[in-house]
Amino acid sequence: MSSSHAPEQFDIAIVGGGPSGRIAALALAQQGLSCILIAPSMEIKDGRTTALWQRSIDLLRDIGVWSDIEGNAASLKKMRMIDSTGRLFRAPEVVFDSSELGLEEFGFNILNSELNAVLEKFCAAQSGLEEISDTVESAEFGDDHATLVTSGGRTISAKLVVAADGRRSTLREAAGIEVKSWSYPQVAVVLNLEHRLPHQQVSTEFHTATGPFTLVPLPGRQSSLVCVETADGAADLLAMTDEDLEADLERRAHSILGRFKLSTKPQSFPLSGLTATSLVGPRLALVGETAHVFPPIGAQGLNLSLRDIRDLISVVASAKRAHADFGGKTVLSAYEKKRFSDIRTRTNAVDMLNRSLLTGFLPVQAARSAGMYLAGRIGPLRRLLMREGIAPGTAFQLHR
């Protein structure tokens, strides 16, 4: 590694311009640490949405951005699951109601573009945080600092590097951290639509033989849709005219929201999974999709990433207060220990649910149906599942 420029010194370098990277950068800078955010320009408009659960919203409140986000988001008061597999063993409909937990809502759904715009504004204004529009070309991780060289020729020295640069992470690869990855025989077709009937703040997930078909409220009479299909099925949807696609999607939704009208063009994403074999390396912490990726089921992705960030902030802030090395092995080991169980549990649960929809094995179908039946009929079990779904580890503590 070589550069004609002397290294620029920072406490922490955060790499990645998505929500995880920007939220981590804001939270760390607010701890009084000198931070640099290295994020490439993002010209592609993201039509997808993100559902944020209460613990994620608490973090966004803590860093002062939630009030600017809330006005563009739709509240999610109920979550309805409907078995639409058409198989021999079919589960009864289950409705999870936030009022059962004494909550006004489980969370909020927002367009990624709206979320990113707010985070970009706050990052630009945050004291102690410098942002450069660049990518990391190479990285070295030493005993007492890491050195990053950007494509633009800048050399950055930091006591800690936070990798939020996604599933194809340059930093993770440079640190020699291996991943376990897998793919599914599925493609997610994603779009937003308008509908004639009000959604009443109810998110509806149809379980189909090819995967979930999920409608999540947006402001007004709009919803975001994730339709998981086979590769051929997704190709058929993408080849349809707007009118035919609207009619097909309305049929799949059993017209519960009336007539559909597309408000964005459909996008498609092959489904896959990934877990890093370690969440840390020398002077390096992985967060978000750099550490874990799984299918868009149960709105767990970004919420899991924000729990990464909350736990990382916790151990870094404690080390700073104790005048300890916040990028050292002791702190990073504590971060990995905090995150290991949550990541493993979420990844396995989402993988199991997704595969249970795809299998034709009758005992698995029966077990899934029985689980849904019990969740619908047994109140304490249903409430436990709701608490763990939105705030893992707080099963008997969650309240507003």
Rank of each mutant, 00 (worst) to 15 (best):
S224I: 03
L279Q: 13
W182A: 08
E43T: 12
R310C: 12
N116M: 14
F340I: 08
A349R: 15
G393L: 09
L160D: 01
G281A: 13
T170Y: 06
F122Y: 13
D134L: 03
A74F: 00
R22S: 08
Q9P: 06
G153Y: 10
S333N: 14
G86E: 03
L362D: 04
C35K: 07
W182F: 03
I177Y: 08
S278C: 10
A13P: 04
G281N: 11
D232Q: 15
V350Q: 15
F340V: 05
R154L: 03
A367V: 10
E100D: 12
A91K: 12
L274Q: 06
H399Q: 14
P185H: 01
T170E: 10
H199S: 04
R48E: 04
T208V: 04
T208R: 15
L304H: 04
H195D: 05
E250K: 14
V65R: 06
L237E: 01
G328N: 03
F108G: 10
A27E: 01
L103I: 00
P40N: 13
S99A: 14
E173N: 14
I44R: 15
G142F: 02
P212K: 08
A27L: 03
A91Y: 03
G371H: 11
I36A: 09
V118K: 13
F260Y: 05
M79H: 07
L362Q: 02
S157P: 07
I132A: 08
A158Y: 01
I69Q: 13
A6W: 01
Q31H: 08
E289L: 05
N72Q: 13
Q365E: 07
G301T: 04
R346E: 12
H199E: 07
S272W: 00
I378D: 08
V364Q: 06
R283T: 01
L101K: 06
A370F: 13
V331L: 01
L160I: 03
E250W: 01
L103H: 08
